[in-house]
Simulated assay, not measured.
Amino acid sequence: MEQSNQVVWITGASSGLGRGMALEYASQSATVAVSARRMDLLEEVVEEIEAKGGKAKAYHCDVMSSQSIEDCVDKIIQDFGKLDVAIANAGNGVMGKIEELTEADWKRQFAVNVTGLALTCKFALPHLRKTKGRLALIGSVAAYIPNPGTSPYGASKSAVHNIGESLQMELKGSGVSCTIIHPGMVESNITRVDNEGNFHPGRQDPRPAKLMWTTKKASEVMVKAIERRKKVFIFTGHGKFIVFLAKYFPSLGRMIKEKMSPR
């Protein structure tokens, strides 16, 4: 679908789904503003987009800082004059049993996945209102199920879902849509980032490779859902199945989760 007049901002766009969505939007002729903390990785994304004839620009943004988010949005507006799509994608995953987790672990998880996401919305919305644009929040099927060993992550994604549904009510009549996206297992670097936010490129992903979608395939369906202004979009096949069990057969879902979870 041609999106040549759209300006799209994606947080956490240096890798994974953020990078994938940036490439997908650029392939549809949108102008893409990519942001993250790692400018070197963002510049690689921009170079890849420009090599294919697309338009993109990199912006430093640390979603743990309100000022950083506000400054990023201001620079995007200065450069492009408007904002049509904002995707709150930046996130991380804190791992560990509840008895082992520290106060700092919990604070970091919610600072990035919840507060950072909410503030991304806050600073993007005045500009999206002007264009009757699209807002997207990236959650996870973990929002619907127990998450032994990664409970901060699941709790944060449950909060994302609630924020999204609240925004849908607050934005009614404004022309701005809010799409909550809950992916199942998709190729990403989330399991290679430790609880302090440090990246370990050699760390093995413990998730079953056979169940994971490619980033490209996931990005294509996510962009389509945002364009169609869907309220809630759940994907992969196993992701839909997990949510179905959680809603209608919770005991069975818990039993399956217990067997899959590491001891």
Results as ranks from 00 to 15, higher is better:
I226T: 06
H182W: 01
E48M: 01
Y144K: 08
V223T: 03
F233A: 07
G164R: 02
V45A: 04
G197A: 09
E2D: 14
F244I: 03
A22Q: 07
M1Y: 02
I145G: 08
T150S: 12
W213D: 00
Q78I: 05
I190E: 11
V232N: 13
Y153Q: 09
D71P: 05
K82Y: 09
T11F: 04
V94M: 14
R229V: 04
G91H: 03
A36M: 12
Q168M: 03
E227C: 00
A51K: 15
H238E: 10
I76T: 02
R129W: 00
V34A: 07
A136L: 03
T102Q: 15
G239A: 07
K55F: 05
K130S: 07
Q6G: 04
N89Q: 07
L135W: 00
G96N: 15
A56Q: 09
R229N: 14
R228N: 09
R254Y: 07
V193M: 14
R134E: 09
I77H: 02
M21D: 09
V112D: 02
K52W: 11
K172N: 15
G149N: 10
Y59K: 06
V46K: 05
A209V: 10
Q6E: 15
T102D: 14
S140P: 13
C72K: 04
S174M: 07
N195K: 13
G154L: 08
K259C: 08
G16Q: 05
I10W: 04
R134Q: 13
H182C: 03
S29L: 04
M212R: 10
G96C: 13
L245G: 06
N147F: 05
D84C: 05
A136F: 05
E48K: 07
K157L: 10
N147Q: 12
K130Q: 13
